[in-house]
Amino acid sequence: MNALAQIDRRADSILRISDVRRRTGLSTATIYRREAARTFPRKQHLGPKMVGWYQSDVDAWVADPVGYRS
């Protein structure tokens, strides 16, 4: 697969921060800190004051939190 190819996200769900916290067991601050360190999936901007994470990305992190690199 080409490195520049886009992933088809049409069937992927968007999780809000409360769902991400519940699935990962991490605090909000830890999620943002790990995102900045590129050891957690990147958030997607949904609006001026709204963000979310793709469920498949969070699931990939849950499956291998130590080995995850965004």
Rank of each mutant, 00 (worst) to 15 (best):
P65G: 01
I14G: 02
A36M: 04
T39H: 10
N2G: 13
A63M: 08
A5S: 13
R69A: 13
S27R: 05
R16Y: 12
R22T: 09
T30Q: 13
V66C: 04
P41Y: 06
T24G: 08
R9S: 05
P41F: 04
D57H: 01
R21L: 13
Y54R: 10
P48A: 11
K49M: 08
D19K: 14
R23S: 14
S27N: 02
T24I: 09
G67V: 06
S13R: 15
Y32I: 07
V62G: 03
P48E: 10
V51F: 00
T24H: 04
R21Q: 15
M1A: 15
V58R: 00
G47Q: 05
D19W: 07
L26A: 09
A60H: 06
W53M: 02
L26P: 03
M50P: 01
G47L: 06
G47D: 12
M1S: 14
P65V: 00
S56H: 08
D59H: 03
F40A: 02
G52E: 03
Q55K: 08
M1H: 13
V51N: 03
R42P: 12
I31C: 04
N2Q: 10
V62C: 11
P65F: 01
K49P: 00
D59Q: 08
S18V: 11
V58P: 01
T39V: 13
P41A: 07
R23Y: 13
Y68I: 10
S70W: 00
I17S: 05
D8K: 12
L26W: 10
I17M: 14
W53G: 00
G52D: 04
